[in-house]
Amino acid sequence: MENYLYQGLIGLTYSMYLWLLAAGLTIAFGILNILNFSHGSLFMLGAYFAFTLYGVFGINFWLAVLLSALGVALVGAVMERFLFRRIYQLELPFQLLLTYGLVLVLDDIVKIIWGGAFLVPPIPPLLDGAVPLFGRPFPIYNLFILAVGALVGILLWIVFDKTWWGRMARAAAWNREMGATLGMNVPRVFTFVFMFAAALAALGGALGIPMRPVSPGLGIAMIVQAFIVTVIGGLGNLRGAFVGAIVVGMLTAYSTMLFPLFELFLPYVVMAAVLMLRPQGLLGGR
C-alpha cells in the first residue's frame, strides 16, 4: 500500500512538470489559436539557460530559474513578433509546419551552443535532502515542485479569471476585430500572451534540470507529452490541461511500476480514446 502511495507522489511530481509545460501550450492555443510544436523546444531552452546560469556561472539557483524564464520569454517575443504574427491567417497545415520548422532550428542552435552531450548540474544545496514519506525517503525537491505546480495553477486562475488583463486577452481571442474596436492593441496583447506561455514552458524546463539530464532531444520528447496532456484535458482548456497532466503523470508512474512493458503505449491509448469518444477533451464544454 505504502508503495502505491509513494509511487503516486512520484507521479504527481511528474504531473507538475507536465502541467507547467502544457499550461503554456494551452494558453497559446486557446488565445492565439496556434498549436505550437516548438513549445517543447522552449521548455528545453529554459533548461539550457538555467543549466548555464546555475551550473556553469554558479549564479544562485532561484535567480537562474527566474532569469531563464525571462530570457525564454524574450525569445518568445521575437518568435511571435516576426514569425507567428504572419501565420495567424493561414491554413492549419502551414501553421503547424512553421512551428515544426522552429523545432528543427532551435534543436540545432542548442547543439551549436551547448553540444550534443547530456548535461547534469548539481542539485541546489538548499533542497538536497529528503523526508521520510510512506516508509521511504522522498526528495524535498519534489515537494517543492508540487508546491510550484499548485502555485502556478492558482496564479493562472487568478490572472485569467479575475484580472482585467486576463479578460482582455480572452476577449481578443474570442474576436480579434471586436478587441480592436474596444481599443485594445490586439497584436501587443498576443505578443504578451505568447511571452507568458514561453516563460511557463521555460520555468518547467529550468526547474527540471536537477531531475533529468539536459540534452538536445528534450524538446521533441516533451512536445508529444504536452500534446497528450492537452488533448486529454481539451485543447485550449486550462483546467483541462491540469487534469490531463495529473492523468498522464499518474498513468506513467503506475504503469512503470505495474506493467512497464506498456508504459510508453498507454498514454497514447488514452489520448486516442479521448479523441474518438470526446474530441473536445475531458473538460471541454463544446
Partner: peptide, 27 residues
Amino acid sequence: LSVKLTEIYFSMLTLSFGMMIYSLVWR
C-alpha cells in the same frame, strides 16, 4: 477510426496512432 475527425483533431489522432505503433515496435 480517424476520418471521423478533421483538422487538428485528425492530426492529433493520427499522431497518437503512429506513436502507438512506435511503442509497440519498441517494446
